[in-house]
């Protein structure tokens, strides 16, 4: 049965789309047939990060309105097998996504895919609610700062009260904390919350810590999910995250300030 995972945060710009692209790609690399659905109507960032913006013909809203079928609309990723993208519409009509329409599309995707990743828009309005409503699991993307943690707390409240699982009295959504843009130096200086602080406040299981990294910017500039940059810290941190999502126990990395090596010290690096 397909698993629906929403990538959500409340606060904007914390790394939802970056993480959706990485998680979708990582699950596909692990051999699971995966589709990433862009719920951010009007903005369309996902196809830029996935580097498929020029291949968009139809979109999510076209499928809901019956103007195109899924087969015509899904974009097959060129680099990664098993991976597809359902792009968002550029319509300005925020109410273009109806609950019945979304349900119909997700049900149809569920027949074919192992994982459906829903990239949520920011905020706690209808778009974000639509993205989380049908979820089985949630990746709550949080930056180590007070306002982001507060918004994540708020979204966790929504997950446990405003989702389909909550309304139908089913087992609750499985919640995962993904800490992104983590900068150990700034944590050490007390300018950012530590992993432990955030874990204590949100009280959900930690699935990954992604360091603040130039590799993410390079990746999005070249339209390639950072998880494919296997040498980079952020790429490796996302690979670890995928293993944990799939149930493996993996130690956390990139949590501490890197000690300068012998050579670097000699040359004053």
């Amino acid at each position: 049965m397909a698993k629906i995972i929403v990538v959500t945060s409340g606060k904007g710009g914390v790394g939802k789309t970056t993480s959706s692209a990485a998680i979708g790609t990582g699950l596909a690399l692990a051999g699971h047939k995966t589709v990433i659905v862009d719920f951010d109507i009007g903005l369309r960032n996902l196809d830029l990060i996935m580097g498929c913006e020029r291949r968009v013909v139809y979109d999510f809203v076209n499928v809901i309105n019956g103007e195109a079928n899924l087969k015509q609309t899904l974009i097959k990723d060129k680099r990664t097998d098993n991976l597809f993208i359902l792009p968002a519409s550029q319509t300005r009509d925020k109410d273009a996504l109806t609950r019945d329409g979304v349900e119909k599309v997700l049900n149809e995707l569920a027949k074919d895919f192992d994982f459906i990743i829903c990239d949520s828009p920011a905020g706690i309005e209808s778009g974000a609610m639509m993205a989380l409503y049908f979820a089985d699991e949630a990746v709550v993307v949080t930056n180590p700062e007070v306002s982001s943690v507060r918004d994540s707390d708020r979204i966790l409240g929504m997950l446990s009260s405003k989702s389909r699982r909550a309304e139908q009295g089913l087992e609750g959504i499985k919640e995962h904390l993904l800490l992104t843009r983590y900068n150990p130096e700034r944590v050490e200086k007390g300018e950012m919350l530590s992993v432990e602080d955030v874990k204590e406040i949100l009280a959900i299981e930690l699935v990954g810590v992604i360091p603040e990294s130039q590799a993410v910017l390079n990746a999005s500039n070249s339209g390639q999910p950072v998880i494919l940059d296997k040498e980079s810290d952020a790429g490796q941190a996302y690979l670890d995250t995928i293993k944990r999502l799939l149930g493996e126990q993996v130690p956390f990395r990139f949590l501490n300030v890197e000690k300068k090596g012998f050579m670097k010290r000699i040359f004053g690096g």
Binding site: R150, G157, M158, A203
Partner: peptide, 26 residues
């Protein structure tokens, strides 16, 4: 569970026991 930011719980005529935390804004 934990009472999250933005949520409100009212125990009418009785005691309230919260097993988790009560978040900022809850």
């Amino acid at each position: 569970q934990t009472v999250r930011s933005g949520q409100q719980i009212y125990a009418k005529g009785t005691d309230l026991i919260v097993k988790g935390a009560v978040g900022a804004g809850a």
